[in-house]
């Protein structure tokens, strides 16, 4: 931040403003011509479609188009916020995300740290590959696998529980509302831990080995090196990932929840995304769905700036 301010101040001082800019443009021509397509892409596919946000304030009619549909003011926002189910879906969304943040966020970091300490390269690669794999399986299949494993009638977990006399009756995991959040977060961790660890492994591999050597000479053990060398070195990455995670706290994965939902756990499994899908999109109520999406984006924006601000104050690491 300070640096950009400095740059802005120093710009007029350099004098030959117009020609300087043009000559800089010329000298950077090769680089710039690589940036422009990206910018164009962003404008065409991300900024231009934003005019569609208008329909959140309209009663969108497919055949009248965005511009000619009648205005509806804030009625769609009001409908969502005064919906008797609103508090329930908000609670579920926040609860699952906070759980995921506390349990799911540190997991890949720990995993990357532990993986980094492995000495056998072959074994390390093997573990890494195995842990990536679930990421490439779609949620429909992965969720189906979990449902099968947890099934009370012929799931392997229940077979074990009953045969080992841990419980006499099989446990209906998916039918018990108290277990749903933890199963959901667990499933997400299981599926995402390897993939999530990639970025940290990359960051760890950038840590200067001399720091480790110095620490070893000073008598630091493995855990101490982890604690005092590796973790501080990748703090920047961790903070940035955390800011991202906080800003998407109103997004729960959509497919996984749809796959795992059933009438018995609906009270705890309905999230903003699934609810709006059912009462908005599936009913072709595009205006309503857009209004909720917009409201969510606004909250996400505030959270993003908030998390960014806090982390800048606390750790001096921030996105912008």
């Amino acid at each position: 931040m300070e640096r950009t301010l400095e740059a802005r101040h120093s710009a007029p001082a350099s004098g030959t403003e117009g020609s300087g800019r043009r000559s800089r443009w010329k000298s950077q021509f090769a680089l710039q011509s690589m940036v422009w397509p990206g910018l164009l892409f962003l404008i065409v596919f991300s900024y231009v479609p934003m005019y569609g946000i208008l329909i959140a304030f309209k009663n969108f009619d497919l055949f009248l188009g965005v511009m000619d549909s009648p205005w509806a003011g804030f009625s769609h926002f009001r409908e969502f916020l005064t919906d008797p189910n609103f508090m329930n879906v908000l609670r579920n969304t926040l609860a699952m995300n906070l759980l995921a943040l506390f349990l799911g966020f540190p997991a890949p970091i720990l995993f990357a740290l532990l993986l980094n300490e492995l000495t056998g390269v072959r074994f390390k690669r093997f573990v890494q590959t195995i842990s990536y794999l679930p990421h490439f399986v779609s949620w429909v299949i992965f969720g189906g696998l979990i449902l099968t494993v947890l099934s009370p009638s012929n799931g392997i977990l229940n077979l074990l529980i009953v045969k080992l006399h841990i419980s006499d009756e099989p446990i209906n995991f998916m039918g018990n509302p108290d277990l749903f959040w933890i199963i959901m977060v667990g499933a997400e961790m299981l599926k995402g831990i390897g993939w999530g660890a990639i970025i940290y492994i990359a960051a760890i591999s950038g840590v200067d080995p001399e720091l480790h050597e110095a620490a070893t000479i000073d008598g630091a053990g493995r855990f101490q090196r982890m604690r005092y060398v590796t973790v501080p070195s990748i703090m920047g990455t961790i903070v940035i990932m955390l800011i991202f995670a906080v800003s998407s706290i109103l997004n729960t994965g959509f497919e996984q929840i749809m796959v795992m939902q059933n009438p018995l756990n609906l009270d705890v499994s309905e999230t903003i995304d699934t609810y709006v899908y059912k009462v908005g999109l599936q009913q072709m109520r595009y205006s309503y769905s857009t209004a909720v999406g917009l409201a969510k984006s606004l909250v996400a924006l505030v959270l993003l700036f908030g998390a960014n601000y806090v982390s800048r104050k606390l750790t001096n690491n921030s996105l912008f």
Partner: peptide, 10 residues
């Protein structure tokens, strides 16, 4: 589809 009643029904 697309009507308020449709939303209530869902």
């Amino acid at each position: 589809g697309g009507t308020e009643e449709g939303g209530i029904n869902a």
